[in-house]
Every structure is written in structure tokens, then in C-alpha cells.
């Protein structure tokens, strides 16, 4: 297979005080693939996301997206190039409606510049098209009935879905999802996986963080494993997830517990949280 990387990072370093939260020698994400980023809590996955997308500064390293060097570029410019991320702690716009959350995600809306804002003729058409696309996406994410509700009224799992749908409104080339399944109930998580697969089939590239190794195995084309800031190993899911070093990396952070137990406990906690929020 010839290599066509959409994201290439070299020697990316980010430290907090004495801790090297990220120290990645080399990372590539191939175009049109689903890549899972796994690793124990504190491995530096979120920090890596933050640095690569311009939300945090790096202490060193270079990285390019779609052939453009984006090292040190402001976050909004990186997003505009087509590299769009979601957040581990969801960031929905609470006092806007679900539909408005989607509309603000659209790109190329001419009415977003002050000059054109006062001339509806210049943005009404694009707005109408965006509404159609937003409704379509919301239906896909089982949020269609919520379009008119304030986003703050959604449950934790629904917020995750909305944030992902909103990122898709932005028509990203590479979508980076930080724990998209966390807090989403198992039935929805299943359909989320289908959405992720569909994204790849549309030609987009997906990089996502996930703890549930079963889920990872069932959708991803490649798996990258991080531990203590570094990429420990990467490759096809079958080989990587059977690699003793990976199991070590996971168990390393929880040397007195079994991996299966950790996953089971986390899933239980998230499901409980979800139920509480939905009834609350």
C-alpha cells in the first residue's frame, strides 16, 4: 500500500513542569483510514490533540496537515484547513438550540463576516442549505426531535453526539474525536461506530481516542498506542491489541488491577452517569 498521510508529526514535545505529557517521536495518520489512539489515562492523548490542533503550544517538534506545515498556527486556522477536533469534556453551546449549535459549525458561511451580515441576500441561501444538512445529520445522530431544544437540556451522551455532529457540519478532512463514546449509552455507541465507519466511506479520515478495546478492534484500520507521552507501538488492530507490550502499557498504569476489570468499571460508571443525567 502506498502511503498517503494526511497528518505527519515529528518529535512533538509538550511538558508541564517536570512532566513530559507528550513526547512523540513520529506519528502519521493515513488518509481515508480510521485510526484509534489508545493508552491509559494520563498517557498524553488529549494533550497531543490539543497541541496538534493549536489549542496548546508545543515545546518542540513539527507537524503538517494535508501537506501544509501547521506547526504553531492558531487553532482556528488549523480548523479551517480541515482538521477539526472534538473535546473530551463536551463543549456544547448551552443557551443555543441544538439546530443553532449545528449551524454555527458550518463553514464558508458568508454572513459570518460583518460586511455581509447586514445583507441577508448574501447568506440566506447558504443558511437554508446548512439547515437541510444540519437536520439530516441530526436525524442520523438521533437528535432530530431535539433540534429546537436548548443544547443545555441534552444528556451527557447526547452532548457527545451533538458535538460530533457539529464537527461534521464543518466538513472536516480529518476529524479528531476525543473519547466520543464516553458517556454514550451502549446502543448509541454502537450506532456511533457505524457513523465513524460511514465517515471513512465518505472519504474522511478519523482519528479517535477510545478506551474500550473491543470497540477499537471492530472499527479501526490502525491503532496507535501511547503511554507516558510516547507512542509505544502502532499497526493493525489484530497485531497491536495482541502485543504483550500494549497490554503492559495498559497494565503498567494499573499494575495491581486487570485490564478487563478497568474497562468493565469504566463502562459501568459511564452508564450510571448517563442514566442519572437522563432521569435527572
Amino acid at each position: 500500500m502506498t502511503s498517503d498521510p494526511v497528518l505527519v508529526a515529528e518529535r512533538v514535545v509538550r511538558g508541564f513542569g517536570g512532566v513530559r505529557a507528550v513526547d512523540v517521536e513520529h506519528l502519521t495518520v493515513e488518509r481515508g483510514t480510521i485510526t484509534a489512539l489508545i493508552g491509559p489515562n494520563g498517557a498524553g492523548k488529549t494533550t497531543l490533540f490539543n497541541v496538534l490542533t493549536g489549542f496548546d503550544r508545543a515545546d518542540g517538534g513539527r507537524w503538517s496537515f494535508d501537506g501544509t506545515d501547521v506547526t504553531g498556527l492558531p487553532a482556528h486556522r488549523i480548523a479551517r484547513l480541515g482538521m477539526v477536533r472534538t473535546f473530551q469534556l463536551t463543549r456544547v453551546l448551552g443557551r443555543l438550540t441544538v439546530l443553532e449549535n449545528m449551524l454555527v459549525g458550518a463553514r464558508h458561511q458568508p454572513g459570518e463576516t460583518l460586511r455581509r451580515a447586514l445583507v441577508p441576500a448574501l447568506w440566506k441561501g447558504k443558511r437554508a442549505a446548512d439547515v437541510d444538512r444540519a437536520r439530516e445529520l441530526l436525524d442520523r445522530f438521533a437528535l432530530g426531535a431535539k433540534a429546537g431544544d436548548h443544547a443545555a437540556s441534552l444528556s451527557g451522551g447526547q452532548r457527545k453526539l451533538l458535538e460530533m455532529a457539529r464537527a461534521l457540519m464543518n466538513e472536516p478532512t480529518l476529524v479528531m474525536l476525543d473519547e466520543p463514546m464516553a458517556g454514550v449509552n451502549p446502543a448509541l455507541a454502537r450506532s456511533l461506530l457505524d457513523h465513524i465507519t460511514a465517515l471513512r466511506d465518505e472519504g474522511r479520515t478519523v482519528l479517535f481516542v477510545e478506551h474500550d478495546l473491543h470497540l477499537v478492534k471492530s472499527v479501526s484500520d490502525r491503532v496507535v498506542v501511547m503511554a507516558q507521552g510516547a507512542v509505544v507501538t502502532e499497526g493493525a488492530p489484530d497485531t497491536v491489541l495482541r502485543d504483550p507490550a500494549v497490554v503492559d502499557a495498559y497494565l503498567g498504569a494499573h499494575h495491581d488491577t486487570d485490564l478487563r476489570e478497568i474497562i468493565a468499571r469504566e463502562t459501568a460508571r459511564e452508564t450510571a452517569g448517563e442514566t442519572a443525567e437522563e432521569t435527572g
Binding site: P74, A75, L93, V104, G105, R166, A167
Partner: peptide, 27 residues
């Protein structure tokens, strides 16, 4: 007129969470 425009929607989005808007490419 400004607040009903997409420009106004971006403003309200910033009020709610500016990082979210940054992640969607808004300056």
C-alpha cells in the same frame, strides 16, 4: 439585523464557549 445574521450567531456561540467556536474555525 446583526444578531439574526450568521455573524450574530457566532457572537452568541462565543458567549457560550469560545473554545468550541475556535475548534470550528472561527477567529
Amino acid at each position: 439585523a446583526l444578531m439574526r445574521s450568521p455573524w450574530g450567531l457566532v457572537l452568541k456561540g462565543i458567549r457560550e464557549d469560545e473554545h468550541a467556536l475556535t475548534s470550528l474555525g472561527k477567529n
